[in-house]
Amino acid sequence: MNTLKKIAGKVLYAIAKLISIILDVLTKIIETIVTIVGGIAKGFIALIGMGGCLLVFMLAGPLGFALLLHPAVLLTILFFVIFPILGTKFVSYLKYIKYIITEYLFDRAYYLMDGISYQFKSFNGYKDKYKKMEYERKRKEQQRRQEEQQKEWEEKFRQWNEYQNYQRRNNGHTNYEWYGQNTGYDNQTYANPTSEFKSKYEKSCDLLGVGYDADKYQIKLAYRKKAKEYHPDLNKSPNATEMFQQINNAYEFLSDGNIERYKNMI
């Protein structure tokens, strides 16, 4: 009986491994296609930007209008617009499916081969674990981006302060009202980041709908409400994805360090 269980476990393990390989290959293929299609679309947009007036003039005529209405042209445009979006979502779905199926099968295989108890009794347990893992991954990624932004602004202010000190030592005074660009002691060009920082901070607060004197708890609460309102899975309006990204960017910028920096400025 134990031998049969071990054989069944090895077969189940092999099936799980095969499914994992197939889904990995499929995911990689779709990711590659999405990257290529997205790159072509961005290149075409850049081309339009460089010769936009000429292109509009060409398409404004009867020939251009007829060309745009041609089914093949319309399908091509839709493909380059929609595929990168749907492809990215499909890749995420494949990763989700791969995790819950393979983890379920691997656990059952280990149980049959070695008697190791599996984590969950049903798929739902693996689904919940994957969602928690994804939430934690996104949280850490967001935290990493916040820390990078924090370091970037700290570096800007550090360089500006060093330039001010250089001016003070060499000229006997510092022009703190000069918001233009300046060449410092190391022949690098610097600009006072105060105005840019304040503008970005206030725009981020406006986007989340909080006052400029809001604390981190008020900002976090406003972010959760806005993120839920514009989440692409819940909000089907055309600009939902763009707004959701802007909301995330605003929240990442409004880190604890930047909140403190802004309060010290006013």
Rank of each mutant, 00 (worst) to 15 (best):
A46K: 12
A46R: 06
G49P: 00
G51P: 01
C53M: 12
C53K: 13
C53A: 15
L55Y: 01
V56F: 06
M58A: 14
M58K: 13
P62V: 13
L63A: 12
L63C: 07
L68K: 05
L68D: 07
H70C: 12
P71H: 06
P71N: 06
L75C: 05
L75P: 04
T76S: 15
L78E: 04
F79I: 02
F80I: 13
P84N: 07
L86H: 10
G87I: 00
T88H: 10
K89N: 07
K89Q: 11
K95T: 04
Y96R: 09
Y96D: 08
Y104M: 11
Y104S: 00
R108A: 00
A109T: 00
A109V: 04
Y110E: 14
Y111S: 11
Y111I: 07
Y111M: 11
M113S: 02
D114S: 14
G115R: 01
Y118S: 09
K121C: 05
K121H: 10
K132N: 10
M133E: 15
M133Y: 10
E134F: 06
E134Q: 14
Y135E: 14
E136Y: 08
E136I: 13
R137G: 01
R137Y: 13
R139P: 02
R139Q: 09
R139N: 09
E141N: 07
Q142T: 13
E148Y: 09
Q149G: 00
K151R: 12
K156E: 14
Q159P: 03
N161Q: 10
Y163E: 05
Y163D: 10
